[in-house]
Design a protein around this nucleic acid. Sequence first.
RNA 1: GCGAAAGUGGCGGAAUUGGUAGACGCGCUGGAUUUAGGUUCCAGUGGGGUAACCCGUGGGGGUUCGAGUCCCCCCCUUCGCACCA
Length: 652
Amino acid sequence: MLANEQVVDGRCWRCDTPVERREIPQWFLRITAYADELLAGLDRLPGWPERVLTMQRNWIGRSEGAEIQFAVDGREPLRVFTTRADTLMGVTYLAIAAEHPLALAAAASRPDLARFVEESRIAQTAEAALESMDKRGVDTGLCARHPLTGEPIPVFAANFVLMAYGEGAVMAVPAHDERDHAFARRYGLPMRVVVVPDGYAGTPADLVREAAYTEPGLLVQSGEFDGLPSAVARERIIAALAARGAGAPRTHYRLRDWGVSRQRYWGAPIPIINCARCGAVPVPDADLPVVLPEDVVPTASGSPLKLRPDFLAVTCPCCGQAAQRETDTFDTFMESSWYYARYCSKDNQQAMLDERAAYWLPVDQYIGGIEHAILHLLYARFFNRLLRDEGLVAADEPFTRLLTQGMVLKDGSKMSKSKGNTVDPQEIVSTYGADTARLFMMFAAPPEQSLEWSDKAVAGAHRFLARLWALGRAVGALERHGEAQGAGRTVRREIHKLVDQAVRDYERYHFNTVIASCMSLVNVLQKTAEEAAAEPSAGPLVWEGFSILLRLLAPIVPHITHALWRDLGMGEGPIIDAPWPAADPAALRQDEITIVVQVNGRRRSEITVPASATSADVEAAALADAGVQRHLDGQPPRKVVVVPGRLINIVR
RNA sequence: GCGAAAGUGGCGGAAUUGGUAGACGCGCUGGAUUUAGGUUCCAGUGGGGUAACCCGUGGGGGUUCGAGUCCCCCCCUUCGCACCA
């Protein structure tokens, strides 16, 4: 029993044994019953990254179309799903999975088909493999009937149709589908053009000589539907099928049910008892949880639980007769789908969850790698709804905000134990302290991006903290009380601009630029503190700025900021209880602003104008500028674009 | 193959909304301090050019007064593709 990733070139990755697929009974959770709700719920997750929402939408893959029945001579009818009912009159063959009951039956009398079915058992089924492999097929000899015309249609067994997907059968329209087109060319199957672009003047056959025409258009060669646009034709054709009991509108999802069975020892046992008389019976609540035996001996193949009579043998809770315990264990995604809820009720031995879960959930901020964008996060959203429907939690969604953090890279590749290129944060903590470790990691990149490890940059982070500490000492020696005046106003504006930027960057989780602003703040305060020797009134300004700086940095480097705050007596209590800083709007006001001057979109100069200057004032000042006049070369501007408060562009 | 992201100096990265590309830091160069190394401090640092300027955000087109940002095509890297979890 191997996982997909353990199969390399159709063989076991360890022992090279050829691998084949076998059908075994397994347990599934019907996530598809929640497909619509899971899809709709994505619109109510503004705190999730757009790309994760998009990936989940595509994964669920809702599509509207029709289910169509094709009668098969002497057999059960075939059912297919299509989104292109408008191309129904262009169907020239049907393709079914090699494992399809009809294919298996037909193989009995057709050796080439039997061989194909046999070969397909060793084929890979991973979607990636399926989509990139050579599309092949074999005629089953079966004859299907077109549901509207009754024309005979050949049925092929094809390696790109899987029994597990949809109905295990598809209708093929080579003129209007790329894959069908390639397949038809390969096997010399006919093509029938039934849709052409509006105003198309050529012959139908010419339209698809090189490639399929996959766009919608107007119907041709489709009898009573000729001339209809695709969208209308779809409805009419589905209606015509419905009238004959051969089809109906249907919504299809790409999402498949969640296979939770694993034929392994390690995992939570699936709590089911298999009884010869009563079938699959749930383990009674009183007997839960089912506990794994801890003294199993690993076997070469198959679950070791199958060799444990003490685990296997149970009496059926329904009929009291001897029965067997299920030996499949759960996919580990099962547990990761609700651990966040269990954390709220971790010590409850009587129930999964209690009212504390309802109180705390949903999780305000969830953090995980982008590799979990689809499976884990979709399973957890599904599981949360199961919990909700059982009355165990109140909210629909488990995670209000989601941050997908990047990986840590070293020398350009993923840091991992198996590669042996890990860095122990404890080393940094021992050498430089925890604040340095935290500062470096937050400064290297925004959290959702991957982070490139650099020992040099770690040292740089430590250097910054040393400067911060030295600045703190200098601040302590300055006059604390009084009011900033004179040149202090410009400095104060500079400080509050940085504060404004930092606070906003915190809100969008750009911690690296928060730190950049704080570094600039240190630079400004350091310079101002030096100047305070000559200009004592600068003291209070430095105190103000340093107080804000410490509070901005406290979430990132809590230890050093705590100590400086306490030593300087910055506030009544510890820094952790201090109010969150905000920029003073009064400090941000400017009397004069600098406007960038462009000529033909290139920066040529800049001018300083009163903040109250109108567009006309700005234009006049810009045109008078020497640099502008040189570039205008005496000619009048053809056009002038003024972006208020920012720039002016003069086009000559 | 399909879906989703990313590509900016020597390096990590910055650029709220289409409006000064390269903030901040690392590294490097020069200088000061030091017996020396390290530390610290000062100055410089995208490329070309004496300069005026020109060129520059993976490549090629396009829209626009103006494009790293929007549109089309291509290249490359990463993540996911349902049994790795």
